[in-house]
């Protein structure tokens, strides 16, 4: 059975023009990591929210063969681990208290050291009892990831999970996500701005622009100079690393690109 099917999804905020239209991609299977790429305001976060909430104006989203919109909230939030783009807000709450409250609310069986293990694996053990306001943006981002991973969900939705992390933790986090996918037969959709990272860790990529799918497929099929020029307005060359993985070398911005203007940012 397919893990996730997304077909013809469209969504608009209120009466404004649709932010995403007719979004779809081949079904996601267990163990697969799908990278969502695109410039700012391409619709990545909106698509993530639509899937997390099981709510779209048009199209269908099915998880394990069941319509997400018809799924009870408890079941949906148990199966889907969603990490929003914004990390947990600074406050005098501690990382442990936040993760513990999530565990208690979702009725997780505690006492076997799951929270301890999770916080240790994300390098948060030392800061576990410090106020969130005393943690760096990167550390708070890791706390957000801990919340998404806590219930070992079948589908992970991570909205730019590595944007505030250093090189070391970017790789640790994505390796951990891959490990989770293998262990739990789960799938993941991860939004990226770092194309090299996406090429390295994703099985498939979907490139969005102006709320529509521009390209989809393997990293080699999606990360082409033509696609990057069209969507990101940059001239780039695609290199191949020693282990065969793709490296994107951005040469220069193409300033005259008509789709890039002030309104995008």
């Amino acid at each position: 059975m397919n893990l996730l099917e997304v077909e013809g999804v469209g969504f608009a905020y209120g009466r404004k023009p649709p932010v995403i239209s007719d979004i779809g991609f081949p079904p996601l299977a267990g163990g697969q990591l799908l990278g969502l790429l695109g410039p700012n305001a391409a619709g990545k976060s909106t698509l993530m929210r639509c899937i997390a909430d099981g709510r779209a104006d048009t199209g269908t989203i099915r998880l394990l063969g069941q319509e997400l919109a018809a799924m009870p909230r408890d079941e949906r939030t148990r199966l889907v681990g969603y990490m929003p783009q914004t990390p947990p807000q600074p406050s005098s709450l501690t990382a442990y208290e936040l993760v513990r409250s999530a565990a208690e609310l979702t009725g997780m069986a505690l006492g076997r050291g799951e929270i301890d293990a999770l916080l240790h694996s994300l390098g948060l053990a030392v800061e576990a009892f410090r106020p969130l306001s005393a943690l760096s943006g990167g550390k708070r981002q890791l706390v957000g990831l801990a919340l998404a991973l806590l219930r070992r969900p079948r589908l992970l939705l991570l909205d730019e999970p590595t944007s505030a992390l250093d090189l070391y933790w970017r790789n640790i986090v994505l390796a951990q996500v891959r490990r989770h996918l293998a262990e739990a037969a789960a799938g993941a959709i991860v939004a990226f701005h770092d194309l090299d990272l996406a090429a390295r860790y994703c099985d498939r990529l979907v490139l969005l622009d102006h709320g529509r799918v521009v390209a989809g497929g393997s990293p080699a099929e999606v990360l082409t100079p033509g696609n990057l020029a069209r969507v990101y307005n940059v001239e780039a060359e695609i290199l191949s690393g020693a282990d065969g993985r793709i490296i994107v070398n951005t040469l220069r911005p193409l300033v005259a690109h008509p789709t890039h203007g002030e309104s995008r940012c």
Binding site: M83, T86, V143, G144
Partner: peptide, 13 residues
């Protein structure tokens, strides 16, 4: 949980 932010609380259910 809400002290961590509204979006995170919603994501947990």
């Amino acid at each position: 949980l809400l002290r961590g932010g509204e979006e995170h609380a919603r994501a947990i259910g």
